[in-house]
């Protein structure tokens, strides 16, 4: 099962490598990782998507908490939360037929075309990871994908729960 862990840490050199180190060192998977400075520039917020049973997730959270740079860790998937991911996909759009099929899919998924060239379209879509998966599969069925880049999941708890220092 997909589990999403959110980490609040010092925006300090080496902090990210320590986090990633815990995963490689202890044999946990990272499905995706998304990190950036927060509204308070002295802090970074990191969202990790991983897999594991409760025991593994408990250990991951404890091991993260042990890192000196880490202020707080929480599992988002434990409670109601919102999650978003962004993908950019470049597809071949070199015929009238392919272009209209792509535009139809872009409409259905509420995606956006960001760049147009003689042979390609570059499309942006934001949403839950599953929606992105579905979009990419659908696009791939009707046209050929040149390349794609995903940001990894980023999320926040719903309601009043918050990860603050």
């Amino acid at each position: 099962m997909k589990r999403i862990i959110s980490v609040l840490m010092e925006n300090a050199p080496g902090a990210l490598s320590r986090i990633v180190g815990v995963f490689s060192q202890r044999g946990y998977n990272v499905d995706s990782l998304c990190v950036a400075e927060t509204d308070d520039p002295s802090l970074s917020r990191l969202t990790i998507a991983t897999q594991g049973d409760n025991k593994v997730i408990e250990q991951i959270i404890k091991q993260m908490n042990k890192l000196i740079d880490v202020l707080k860790v929480t599992e988002l998937t434990e409670a109601a939360h919102v999650e978003r991911e962004l993908v950019l996909v470049k597809v071949v759009a070199n015929s009238e037929a392919s272009r209209s099929e792509i535009i139809r899919n872009v409409d259905i998924f509420r995606a956006k075309i960001l760049d147009v060239s003689a042979v390609n379209y570059t499309i942006e879509l934001t949403g839950a990871s599953e929606k992105l998966d579905a979009f990419i599969t659908t696009l791939g069925n009707s046209s050929s994908i040149v390349e794609s880049a995903r940001t990894g999941v980023c999320g926040l708890a719903r309601g009043e729960r918050a990860l603050t220092p």
Binding site: K55, K62, Q63, N65, K66
Partner: peptide
């Protein structure tokens, strides 16, 4: 003293 040692 180390929570990570508990139930590891």
């Amino acid at each position: 003293i180390d929570p990570a040692s508990i139930s590891k």
